[in-house]
Design a protein around this nucleic acid. Sequence first.
DNA 1: CAGTTTATGTCAGCATTGTTGACATTCCAA
DNA 2: TTGGAATGTCAACAATGCTGACATAAACTG
Lengths: 170, 170
Amino acid sequence: MSDGRSGSGFGGESLLFLTDEQLRQGIEAMFFAYRGFTADPDRILAELAYGRAHHRALHFISRSPGTTVNNLLSILGVTKQSLNRVLRALVEDGLVDSRVGTLDKRERNLYLTEQGQELEQRLSDAQRIRMRSAYKQAGPEAVQGFKKVLEAMMDADMRRAYVEMREKPQ
Amino acid sequence: MSDGRSGSGFGGESLLFLTDEQLRQGIEAMFFAYRGFTADPDRILAELAYGRAHHRALHFISRSPGTTVNNLLSILGVTKQSLNRVLRALVEDGLVDSRVGTLDKRERNLYLTEQGQELEQRLSDAQRIRMRSAYKQAGPEAVQGFKKVLEAMMDADMRRAYVEMREKPQ
DNA sequence: CAGTTTATGTCAGCATTGTTGACATTCCAA
DNA sequence: TTGGAATGTCAACAATGCTGACATAAACTG
């Protein structure tokens, strides 16, 4: 593993020889890029005494209005207790509406209020500006590759969630 | 900004029309992929009562042996106080060696001990396995695009740090 | 149908890791 | 040589992970 060389052997099934150095570059690219990716929303959130956790909740509630707490936490990959703290703040501040489920009263269906939509929009806009600029600089084929590698990097269940969302736009 | 449509206008300088929906997919891809990206090292770290912060420190000390605290925190993008806590633990546990600078005694030069190198290797190996698998699934052109978009997504100073590291392998 | 188990969500308390503030040491420049 | 700047450490606070305990609603079982 640490011979600085790796790939699928010499059997001819692949000509990809990925050195540890090449892989390390990818790792560092992910690290640095993710920082940029979150930087703009982070600045807005800091003014409002919110954090990334609030942004993530707003994003996915906006994405799937009426979603339940349970649903949301499987997407976000945090515990329900952790998510709850964030949701409580958002509900108290009037950004999120939490309605008792009609079919199953244990559930809470989550919606953005008008104010919540406003903030979500503001955060998304900031993040999209950077994304759009990166896409333009890199070009369409690069974007294709970008998505392909990211998708291959996800855990199986996250890939499922991702693909499902992608296929049900709105 | 929120018309679901964006691009560079109709002037002909670009035929890229990036809908908000396309951009949102990219945003979600980054989010889900980053989770996968950190998942494997996270599992190892959890066993050892370390966190991502420790991993990052080990990675960049391994990358640039002898680097200073100041240097490291500009790369990591955290405050020196935050980094210090992590470094203290690593030094106490015998993973990192912190030597008073010879030229400037205010500085501390950081090195991995043998034990530190071992853990760093273990973490990197885990992360590289996933990265290599993603690269193979996506193919070489996709990897090119992946790096191109990520680089364009970085803040200017992070891009500088990234490129610099890339050009001075080891 | 009564009683138990399971599912969903909330509240409380702890750990990690970010933050700012105060400070000691060292270097450098006036 | 002395005052300010740079580097790093210690302390205390905030955000957000986590586990545990619990209330309520639904579902299952005899």
